[in-house]
């Protein structure tokens, strides 16, 4: 199939970006990123600068890849990262618009590559259980209800790709933050410090310059791991309880 790509090119954070048009020949079996590889190989053979894009595992789990394809983070397929998106989802003659994640808290590094270190800082603020190596008791000492463990697992599948932020008209990081808050709060091990955790993580999230959630639900639609916005509601609840109930003045 013959495709027309409109790819976002931007030299660095401080440069202005713009779209660049390219024609590409693809086939059904190719993944979207392999199609990008083909484009880049051609650019290189013409001694031109290849399009910079993030990618690593190419099996949908590392969360590195990030492209907005025709307005949709990770492209048209539901529950799929760009690296798992295949060209059979497109047809001959399609025009494909490829853009980076757009959010103030994710500045563009180059072309389609953005800086998502804000996510790391949110986790550093409290996305952990404070246990040192060696302090743990036997793994079966605390039974956890199967459904509860499964719910925690569903929240924990977040790959930290940032599609939720990219999809959100407000660039809010609520789905990402709440998934981690909820994953840990659901487990008895994480329950202990959940009040402190939710306050610290929300504070960091706000400081990073993400927008406020207006419950549009776009994040849930675009999340490649299909994480539910019930996590956001749970975090809202937890946050209120934590702030109102806490003994300290923060």
């Amino acid at each position: 199939m013959k495709l027309t790509l409109k790819v976002w090119r931007q030299k660095s954070k401080d440069h202005k970006g713009s779209f660049e048009n390219h024609q590409v020949e693809a086939d059904d079996h190719m993944s979207f990123l392999e199609m990008m590889d083909v484009l880049n190989e051609r650019l290189i053979s013409n001694k031109a600068e290849p399009v910079a894009f993030s990618h690593d595992c190419r099996e949908g789990i590392c969360g590195t890849c990030n492209m907005v394809i025709n307005g949709k983070p990770h492209g048209p397929s539901k529950g799929t990262t760009v690296c798992q998106l295949h060209m059979r989802e497109f047809k001959d003659g399609d025009v494909i618009v490829i853009e980076p994640w757009r959010a103030a808290a994710f500045p563009v590094i180059k072309d389609l590559v953005v800086d998502r270190s804000s996510f790391d800082r949110i986790i550093q603020a409290g996305g952990y259980i404070s246990v040192n190596t060696g302090q743990a008791q036997d793994a079966n000492a605390i039974p956890i209800e199967k459904d509860t463990a499964a719910q925690a697992m569903d929240a924990a599948t977040c790959i930290g790709c940032g599609a939720c932020v990219a999809a959100c008209p407000n660039a809010s990081a609520m789905l990402f933050t709440s998934a981690k808050v909820n994953h840990l709060a659901l487990l008895p091990q994480g329950q202990v410090e959940s009040s402190r955790r939710v306050r610290a993580m929300v504070k960091q999230m706000d400081e990073e310059g993400f927008g406020a959630c207006s419950n549009t639900g776009a994040c849930e639609v675009e999340c490649p791991k299909e994480i539910s916005i019930t996590n956001i509601a749970a975090m809202n609840r937890m946050y209120m309880g934590a702030v109102i109930g806490a003994q300290d003045q923060v």
């Binding site: 952990y128 259980i129 246990v131 190596t133 060696g134 302090q135 743990a136 008791q137 036997d138 793994a139 079966n140 039974p143 956890i144 209800e145 199967k146 463990a149 499964a150 925690a152 697992m153 924990a156 994953h183 840990l184 487990l187 091990q189 994480g190």
Partner: peptide
């Protein structure tokens, strides 16, 4: 054996049986 203990304490949501054990 220590690894599993450590991972559970960190909040790794391993698969469980109905009785709540791993």
């Amino acid at each position: 054996v220590n690894i599993i203990d450590q991972a559970v304490a960190q909040g790794v949501p391993f698969a469980r049986e109905y009785g709540g054990l791993l």
